[in-house]
Design a protein around this nucleic acid. Structure first.
Lengths: 215, 215, 215, 215
DNA sequence: CATGAATGAGTGTTCATTCAT
DNA sequence: TATGAATGAACACTCATTCAT
């Protein structure tokens, strides 16, 4: 059934255009006509692939979350513990154009999710999912002795998640102050503090030195 | 003698209603009719006190920022250093109904500020102002020996600000997980860690010193 | 009763401001707030002197017509026949700022009078009145032998009235082409033709010479 | 394949309805809702064919001027000199229902053009164009010996144009007095006078010669 | 008398949605 | 499948009008 394949490919093409429009014009500033123009198709074509405007936006969020999760899978394969944690944390900051677009889009989605949580399809799904993965990796790192086992992994994860989205917000609001480099440096420093507390001076020094070399 | 009305008092009454509407319906979900209904007045009355819808929203943000700053003044008077810092940080979390409303309102404002920064009146003013105050108080605390003088006050402030707004966002997105109590506990723990590093074991101090050198 | 005098004086002051506003903004572009601003008073004061907006405009037209008629009286006293006719015709062209304002104002009134004739107070009153006076003076001039008695005075008057208002319109639409001087020259030439036809060569020459000296 | 509609034909249909509305309600009394009702379509359809209200009105004027010019072309073909002049002059009087509607519509346009000339698309275009054609035909008639060559063709044209629009105005303001028949008779008489002066008695010729010398 | 606060109907305009082709 | 014509409700905004002071 080749038609079905085309259908799905077309759908994703359309939704990627929706991301750009929402990132540019905001969630409710995004009109169906604007989306159609961005896709290069007519307004009617969106009615074919989606029930209504809400379905378009919901589907766009869905696809974004799918893509993010897929990226996690590929990035985390082969990693565990602290190195996986570092990879996951850095992957969730808007450190390049693609993820900045993603963040802008999702930020609009969140500000709406705050209001009417029942109308939103997967309410704040990314948050819970991300925090679960963070907790899991922190547990691993604690088992491996990379992170101080005395602190609650839930609390550490909550703090990292807070930093991730706080930095995401501020880097969009004031990119001059909170540059991409500074975000990365600050979040790595925070990871270092977790490590150092666990391993003491020598380990901490080595780890941080390696990380500097990495970038 | 015309019907005498305290113009400023009425204006603030109206703007407080606007906060509620924006927190409930979002920035562009907020219609003039909805605002009028929330105020209890007719739609025309808003035309009396404000030039247009944009002026309403700008004024609402302005008033919110004024209120926040005024609260800072009253809370920080007589305090300095770490205790002032703790007070300021806790004051900027949505730990009660009033500040939750405030946060919901400003979150909508920020998500719009991300898009068209030039159309927004005082772009993300709260952020910059808050971070300046944080930096200042961290410096004081460092001078008083309450916080390790080896770390950059700008970086510490950036991290605290990230946590504040990250927690604000997540507590609104998932209040069941990130309760008010947990927010307070986590942020206080973070402040404690700053303190411990200053007063505590040699290992901690050495590590932080190295990190400063690294950059 | 001094109060009544003040009342009438104030009314006329207000209406003169209305003329300026209508000439500037057009009949329906003229708002009560705009009129109030032009008068220097508050919006409410107009409600005291006039029933509603329509009453304001009707009164403004009335006053304009009164003024015009009064001007006719003063200009035509002592004159008769052709010289009175010339005076009347020239007085009804927008040859100075005051009469240009008047014409602009009345032109707006006419364009409305064309539509709903029943709503207009004195429908096109100026026209009929002016044409009656024109006819009367033409009759006088014919009796005095100044104008060829063979032509219908009604037709001559109709033609002069057409020229007057046609020139008024075009001088406002394209003042660069139909200057004040050209209007005066053309209308005088037309009057000359009436005269010359009646008196033949010699008389015509004398009259036109005198007229040239007059200016 | 979309629903196929002849865009231009529909546009002209709509604009003809706009003429009727403006002639009936005036330029600013003409609402989009009123226009939609007159067309028989919904308000949204006007948004399809025109950018905004201004575009509607501008387009309506444009179409009217196009139609007028097209009518000129067809009427003047094969004619020259005085007979062409007579045809053109009579064609620009509201002597039938179609041209009366046209005149009512354009009169509203002119009264607005007087105020804000820059906002109006082709300010008073009909006037200048018409006068140019009048001048040209008068020149032809003078060359053919139909009209006295001693008088300035520009002045004759200005006078005829004044009569045309003066009569147009008055016939709308007071159709009982200035009937269609009377308009035609008076304007033809005026044309005859131009002819008589050319072909007629010595006296007339002499006078007009002097008048030319006077200026 | 004079003010200007308050009203609410009406405006132009935008836009999600439907549907005949 | 894809189009874009058509709809009509909802929007921000203006304004004549009323009326308590």
């Amino acid at each position: 059934m080749p038609k079905t394949v085309d259908h799905e490919v077309r759908r994703e093409e359309l939704l990627e255009a929706v991301w750009r429009v929402v990132a540019r014009d905001g969630l409710e500033g995004a009109t169906i006509r604007g989306m159609a123009q961005e896709t290069g198709w007519s307004v009617g074509v969106l009615a074919h692939y989606f029930k209504d405007k809400d379905d378009i936006l919901v589907s766009a969020v869905d696809l974004a979350l799918q893509r993010i999760e897929a990226r996690w899978e590929s990035q985390l394969s082969g990693l565990r513990g602290l190195s996986a944690l570092r990879s996951l944390v850095l992957d969730n900051l808007p450190l390049d154009a693609e993820r900045e677009l993603e963040t802008k889009f999702l930020m609009n989605y969140w500000s709406r999710a705050i209001r009417d949580r029942e109308r939103v399809p997967r309410p704040a799904r990314r948050g819970p999912e991300l925090i679960d993965r963070l907790i899991e990796l922190i547990r691993e790192a604690q088992q491996d002795g990379e992170i101080d086992a005395g602190r609650s992994p839930e609390d550490i994860a909550e703090m990292l998640l807070g930093l991730i989205d706080g930095f995401s917000l501020h880097s969009l609001l004031d990119p001059g102050r909170l540059t991409r480099e500074r975000q990365a440096r600050l979040i790595e420093a925070e990871l270092d503090r977790l490590t150092c507390e666990a391993n003491g001076v020598a380990a901490g020094r080595d780890v941080s030195t390696q990380r500097v070399r990495r970038h």
